[in-house]
Simulated assay, not measured.
Amino acid sequence: MKIDFIPFQIGMQYENWEFDLEPINLSFKISYDQFIYFKKDIKELFGIEIQDIHLYFNLDILFKVEIIFKSKNQVQDFIYLATELEKKYSRQVLVSKNDKLTKTWKDPKKHLIIEHNFKNNQLKLMVLDKKYIEV
């Protein structure tokens, strides 16, 4: 699955963005570092305004990208985003579990996930290396 709508590709080196990142979570107890991409050059995705972009690195290798949207109508935007991604990648089953709606596209190396969390009313899109599903 080629993800061409964001410049961040799973497996790329930290040095590609090191001057555009601010640490959020640096811990020696866990095996990854989390950064916020503070450069404001990516303002929207599929016409939905972006609030934050978080990049996760393990040993300076990008393994997860998390895009949090600033949306007035999260459920409507979730449906719109799911429709746009299904045009690109294929139809997927909608899963409702633990106060979350999700759709997941999988390939042998990575997953593309959209999620609406009802508890915190947050819409996000994630791309991650399938080895790090739980992070």
Score class of each variant (00 low, 15 high):
39 K>Q: 13
43 K>V: 13
78 F>C: 12
18 E>W: 15
76 Q>E: 14
63 F>G: 06
52 D>P: 04
36 I>W: 05
121 N>I: 07
6 I>N: 04
64 K>N: 06
45 L>M: 15
31 S>G: 15
17 W>C: 06
48 I>M: 07
65 V>D: 02
126 M>N: 03
104 T>K: 04
11 G>F: 15
18 E>F: 12
11 G>M: 14
95 V>R: 13
17 W>G: 09
126 M>A: 11
45 L>D: 02
49 E>N: 05
26 L>A: 00
45 L>F: 07
26 L>M: 14
95 V>K: 12
86 E>V: 10
122 Q>F: 11
58 N>S: 03
36 I>M: 07
4 D>P: 04
92 Q>Y: 03
13 Q>I: 08
121 N>V: 10
2 K>S: 10
135 V>M: 01
34 Q>D: 09
90 S>N: 09
7 P>M: 03
61 I>K: 01
52 D>M: 08
27 S>Q: 05
67 I>R: 04
53 I>F: 01
87 K>L: 14
37 Y>D: 04
21 L>V: 03
105 W>V: 07
7 P>L: 05
132 Y>R: 01
26 L>F: 10
24 I>V: 09
102 T>L: 07
50 I>C: 03
130 K>M: 11
118 F>S: 15
86 E>S: 14
31 S>E: 13
59 L>F: 14
19 F>W: 14
26 L>E: 07
88 K>E: 09
89 Y>T: 10
98 N>W: 12
30 I>H: 10
100 K>H: 10
36 I>L: 09
79 I>C: 03
47 G>W: 10
42 I>H: 01
127 V>P: 01
126 M>H: 08
40 K>W: 05
115 E>T: 10
90 S>F: 13
119 K>D: 13
28 F>A: 15
31 S>N: 09
43 K>T: 05
108 P>H: 12
64 K>H: 11
5 F>I: 05
53 I>A: 01
96 S>A: 15
21 L>M: 09
90 S>G: 09
131 K>H: 15
59 L>C: 08
65 V>S: 00
69 F>H: 02
89 Y>S: 05
29 K>I: 05
84 E>P: 10
49 E>R: 10
24 I>N: 09
18 E>P: 11
38 F>I: 08
57 F>I: 03
111 H>I: 03
99 D>R: 08
125 L>P: 00
51 Q>T: 06
119 K>Y: 03
66 E>H: 04
26 L>G: 03
17 W>N: 07
30 I>K: 14
30 I>A: 02
85 L>G: 13
84 E>Y: 04
126 M>F: 12
84 E>F: 04
82 A>D: 08
126 M>P: 06
21 L>S: 00
110 K>L: 12
91 R>E: 08
22 E>P: 05
61 I>H: 02
115 E>I: 08
117 N>L: 05
41 D>Y: 06
5 F>Y: 14
88 K>A: 02
40 K>V: 01
128 L>F: 08
71 S>Q: 02
60 D>V: 04
133 I>M: 09
46 F>I: 11
19 F>D: 14
30 I>F: 08
55 L>H: 00
14 Y>V: 01
37 Y>E: 01
91 R>C: 06
98 N>Y: 14
72 K>N: 07
4 D>Q: 10
83 T>G: 14
59 L>Q: 11
55 L>N: 02
103 K>I: 13
